[in-house]
Amino acid sequence: MKPLAVLLGLILLGGCNAEERSHVVKLEKGGYTGTADGVLSDATRLTLRQRMAWLTDGPAEVAAGDGPAPTATATVSGRITGQNY
């Protein structure tokens, strides 16, 4: 009986992906312990914010620094006179 159980266990284990076999399943919830990710620089953050201008319909001016940037200053180009936007 015993060898059979071992065999069965091995077969079951074989069903897992190789890299999964050594995993420790935690029974209590903890925090992330994996490799730490890089942190964005402020310059990158500013670039990202400026890049958001393209998500509107046209180029917009985006203020530097923190806080919501007023897209109200967006320059909608090419209006014709009398247009109501």
Partner: peptide, 8 residues
């Protein structure tokens, strides 16, 4: 320009 298509 994105509406008139004319270069400014």
């Amino acid at each position: 320009d994105k509406t008139t298509l004319r270069a400014v």
